[in-house]
Design a protein around this nucleic acid. Structure first.
Length: 467
RNA sequence: GGUGGCGUAGCCAAGUGGUAAGGCACGGGUCUGCAAAACCCUUAUUCGUCGGUUCGAUUCCGACCGCCACCUCCA
């Protein structure tokens, strides 16, 4: 069964076929580093991470580039407000971004280039555009001439910018130096108090869109397989990337465009003013675990809006606790040696198949998680009946390894030894239970519960777990 | 004004022209000395409303209602 993705470019679900055999080249628009990333940002980054993990899991060799936008209007504004040089200002948010990404188990892409380290590449690309008549200088800045690119609008369907009723007047007033209001800036003339780079285009700084074209081409070539990001980037950012890239090279830029829908918080667009704005740190400070946040972000397929609520994170915490306990019991299980017909191993194999098929189908994480739930139940039944064979155990563990490789939602195995005094109490309780001294046994259980250690009696003895 | 999307049980949510996955919560049960955990059962005759096409629609078409997004910085 092959992989399929919904391609924003064609608005259709298409079989995924890389340009070069088993090698996949992919570009993802990364963060603009002027503040802590919020969970909406991370919805997209978790989606990209799952895409990345799934491609690798299916055996593709991956070259994944994610840029860091470290120069733009907001960054300049906030760096100035903070009284810091641009690089020093962005450096700290780059660091915070990776801290958050690590907490969410987001894998590091192979290449994570920063815009300001690629000014020469951008200038060179703009030079090509001028050379082919697709760009022009005006008043110290350089603009892309949209009229030179007939395919403009293929991705977004927007043929014209400034078509908002009542909005076009403002656009025109600001942009009188352009030949056409739709044209966008490639290189901005230097401004007082702004970071400036010298270049053959004159002193100035890059416009927003050119960085992604320049860096994608540098690391991935002029044509590559996948370009992804949030839906809001479709227009103008990705539309402009296509225009400037394809105008310069005459070749198709990215073949598959994948866009993650936004998330809402409590059913509304997240905004600081509304008070429904969360960074990852906000959630960690409230005591939620990053993996639960990841689960929430991963559980809704990426093309659907996701309604984020704290209740949802709490439900995810409960869900993951059960799942992790099942995996732990499975790891510790001693398989039965009694020979018998092993139905479980076959059922598990089918479930693993379903999991992969769901993910192959445009990353249908909701359906994949249904398979995970089946796997969990199957394991628990076999375990409680004492019917888990070596083969079934191995298959089930492999199944959870699949889940972990692709979704990254499980806790790592971490065998933990209890302090000797607690072990002694557990032993004492066992003896008390054997002697039917239940009062003492319950007393010990309550005492340990107060310390966050839950005891569970089963037919193979007593297990403990953290509350 | 233009464009796109969504509306499925208390909540999150999958899905399909053929009779509604899964999770969380709730209730009942099995197991247990009692618990816990696990498991089982129950929970939408119904998929925003009204029409149409069809042997049959939640799934296709139309209208309407409600919500969201993009068209401007935004993941």
């Amino acid at each position: 069964m092959s992989m399929h993705f919904f391609n924003s470019l064609t608005r259709q679900r298409e079989p995924f076929v890389p340009l070069e055999g088993r090698r996949v080249r992919m570009y993802a628009c990364g963060p603009t580093v002027y503040n802590f990333a919020h969970i909406g940002n991370f919805r997209t980054f978790v989606f990209v991470d799952i895409l990345r993990r799934h491609l690798k899991w299916r055996g593709y060799e991956l070259l994944h580039v994610m840029n860091l936008t470290d120069v733009d209007d907001k960054i300049i504004r906030d760096a100035r407000a903070a009284g810091l040089p641009l690089r020093e200002f962005t450096e700290r948010y780059v660091t915070h971004f990776w801290e958050d990404a690590d907490a969410l188990d987001i894998e590091r892409p192979e290449v994570t280039p920063r815009a300001t380290d690629h000014i020469p590449e951008m200038v060179a690309l703009i030079g090509r555009l001028i050379h082919c008549g697709c760009a022009y200088h005006s008043d110290g800045s350089t603009y892309f001439r949209i009229a030179s690119f007939p395919r403009y609008g293929v991705l977004s369907g927007n043929k014209l910018a400034g078509n908002i009723a009542g909005g076009s007047a403002r656009v025109e007033a600001d942009e009188y130096e352009k030949d056409d209001v739709r044209d966008f800036v490639l290189w901005k003339r230097t401004q007082p108090d702004e970071p400036t780079w010298d270049s053959p285009l004159g002193p100035g700084r890059p416009g927003w869109h050119i960085e992604c074209s320049a860096m994608a081409m540098k690391y991935l070539g002029e044509s590559f397989d996948i370009h992804c990001g949030g839906v809001d980037l479709i227009f103008p950012h990705h539309e402009n990337e296509i225009a400037q890239s394809e105008a310069a090279t005459g070749k198709p830029f990215a073949r598959y465009w994948l866009h993650a829908e936004h998330l809402l918080v409590d059913g509304r667009k997240m905004s600081k003013r509304e008070g429904n704005y969360y960074t990852l740190r906000d959630l960690l400070d409230r005591g939620y675990r990053a993996r639960a946040v990841r689960y929430v972000l991963a559980a809704v397929p990426y093309r659907k809006p996701l309604n984020f609520t704290l209740e949802g994170v709490e439900a995810a915490e409960r869900r993951l606790k059960r799942l992790n306990e099942t995996v732990r019991r499975l790891r510790e299980a001693v398989p039965t040696t009694t020979n018998q017909v092993d139905e479980t191993a076959k059922v598990v194999a089918d479930i693993r198949q379903s999991f992969g098929a769901a993910m192959d189908d445009d990353l249908n994480t909701a359906e994949a998680l249904a398979a995970v739930a089946q796997l969990e139940t199957t394991v628990n039944i076999a375990l409680s009946r004492g019917e888990l064979t070596e083969a079934a155990k191995a298959a089930a563990l492999a199944g959870f390894e699949d889940v972990q490789a692709v979704l990254g939602i499980l806790d790592p195995a971490q065998p933990e030894l209890l302090p000797a005094d607690i072990e002694a109490l557990i032993a004492e309780r066992l003896a008390a239970r054997r002697a039917k001294n239940f009062a003492r046994a319950d007393e010990i259980r309550a005492q340990l519960a107060a310390q966050g250690i839950i005891l569970e009696d089963g037919k193979d003895g007593t297990r403990w777990r953290r509350a």
